[in-house]
Design a protein around this nucleic acid. Structure first.
Length: 179
DNA sequence: CTTCTAACA
DNA sequence: TGTTAGTA
């Protein structure tokens, strides 16, 4: 597909798609006309890129993710780059802090607007305890036990979910394996 | 009409 | 990132 279609299907502007390419995030083929030719998987890749960009990651980091993690079918290239991994752990921590800041801002708006927050009306009763806890708190209590400190990610060798991050960035491939 | 590159009141 | 110019 050409840039226009990919743009329509991802919500990114053609300008942005060319920029992603300039940043090494995408490497579309070229038609003899010079027009860029994108593949179906690029749709999910772009969505992943936009999600990460919106979360505050810069294109350099995203490029590392795209280049540092093996695609489907590929074998993990040597030692699954530990530097990249904890770099991502830092991004994750940053996002968590950001979530807390947003929650605080929302709380301030709720106070300004009056006790009856929208969430109050939508839900039947009071906020669930889990929602009242900060993202940071949920980070340590809810769901699976989060990896912490210098704890390493379990080896993806014989695992059921090899390279989850790469697959997350490529929806088409992730739905096949993760679900 | 769509895309391309280059450039910036 | 937007947007415009001048093409192909």
């Amino acid at each position: 597909m050409r840039i226009g279609e990919l743009a329509r299907r991802t919500g990114a502007t053609p300008r942005a798609l060319r920029y992603y390419e300039e940043q090494g995030l995408l490497t579309p083929e070229r038609r003899p006309s010079g027009y860029r030719e994108y593949g179906e998987p690029d749709v999910d890749t772009v969505r992943g890129i936009r999600t990460l960009l919106a979360a505050g990651l810069n294109s350099a980091v995203i490029a590392e993710i795209l280049h540092g993690l093996p695609g489907p079918g590929q074998r993990p290239p040597g030692p699954t780059c530990p530097e990249l991994l904890d770099g991502l752990a830092r991004e994750r921590a940053r996002i968590t802090r950001q979530m807390d800041e947003l929650a605080e801002a929302r709380g301030l708006l709720d106070a300004i607007m009056g006790a009856e927050a929208p969430s109050e009306a939508i839900r039947s009763g009071r906020l669930r305890a889990a929602d009242r806890r900060s993202a940071g708190e949920r980070e340590q209590t809810g769901g699976r036990r989060p990896r912490q400190d210098g704890e390493r990610r379990p080896e993806p060798t014989g695992g059921r979910h090899p390279q989850p991050v790469a697959r997350k960035l490529d929806g088409a491939r992730s739905r096949t394996v993760l679900e």
